[in-house]
Design a protein around this nucleic acid. Structure first.
Length: 283
DNA sequence: AGCCAGGCCCAAC
DNA sequence: GTTGGGCATGGC
């Protein structure tokens, strides 16, 4: 069934899906997007302020898609506050207006960003897609195409490197097996409870997993655990920090401090506008 | 062909 | 505690 909601503001699906925070949404010929999240397949389109989601229900919209798209939060206010911080941020917001930080599934985000390391976005998407098709639960069919969810930690914990070879994950395959075993050891309870932890504790837990360092951990904190102040620093953010804020590319500590001082509790959201801006306008 | 990609691990200082 | 080499794979 199809649901419609009007008066949706400060949302741009292209910016939200293409800013590098998620990997499983694809644009259709008609401009709508189809993707899988939380085990559901939906097709979504926004025309003016009218949001239409196909293949869902009123109940699922309330329980899954409102939190997923972060629709209860006032991004107009957030953008206003960040834009007042400085001129670069202001330009980045003009460019990426409507970008919202999705609240994604923790396990899927964890695996996705382990795969993301030293990798490019196109290939990250292919790796994730293959992993889901080969080992994920069937999530449904939309317009003749079948979709599969991210395989659970129980499934991945029982695979071998040979099983994963077909996914072409490279050296990351072992990280995924090790992390799946660690998460499955307590039935995923620690991972699920991270949202209620302090950011510091959640970060420490993530860093204890295999293939998760500071950058990947901060992405997971921001994109799935509601830790808005988390400021992931990758090669692109280093370039932003160097080009626009005159911080040396190796000085991560100074970048972190700068983010806290300048962007405060919305550091991660600011980071995402900057990432999207610099990637779309490289040098 | 060689460099790069939303970095991390581990050994050597 | 910090630094640097190595790392699978494929797009450009």
């Amino acid at each position: 069934m199809k649901i419609v909601r009007e008066k949706i503001t400060d949302l741009d699906l292209e910016h939200t899906f293409d800013c590098g925070q998620c990997f499983r949404w694809n644009r259709e010929a008609d401009g709508s997007y189809t993707g899988v999240a939380f085990g559901r397949v939906i097709n979504i389109v926004l025309k003016e302020d009218k949001l239409t989601i196909d293949h869902t229900t009123d109940e699922e919209f309330d329980q899954i898609w409102i939190p997923y798209f972060d629709l209860t939060r006032d991004y107009g206010k957030i953008m206003g506050e960040l834009a007042a911080a400085d001129e670069t941020m202001k330009e980045a917001i003009v460019y990426g207006r409507g970008l919202r930080i999705l609240q994604q599934d923790k396990w899927e985000t964890l695996i996705s960003f382990i795969i993301s390391q030293n990798n490019n976005i196109l290939r990250i998407k292919k790796c994730i897609e293959t992993l889901c098709e080969n080992f994920g639960a069937y999530a449904g069919e939309y317009h003749g195409k079948k979709y599969y969810a991210m395989p659970s930690f129980d499934v991945l914990a029982n695979l071998t490197l040979e099983d994963l070879a077909s996914c072409k994950l490279g050296y990351r395959a072992n990280y995924i097996l090790e992390t799946a075993k660690l998460v499955a050891a307590d039935g995923g309870r620690t991972l699920e409870s991270t949202g209620a932890m302090t950011t510091e504790d959640a970060l420490a837990y993530l860093l204890s997993l295999s293939g998760v360092g500071p950058k990947v951990a901060n992405c997971i904190l921001l994109f799935s655990m509601g830790k808005d102040e988390s400021f992931p620093i990758d090669v692109w953010i280093k370039r932003v920090m160097n080009r626009f804020y005159q911080i040396e590319e190796k000085d991560m500590k100074k970048m972190q401090d700068f983010a806290v001082e300048t962007f405060g509790v919305y550091g991660g959201i600011a980071q995402q506008y900057l990432f999207y801006y610099i990637r779309s306008n490289p040098c």
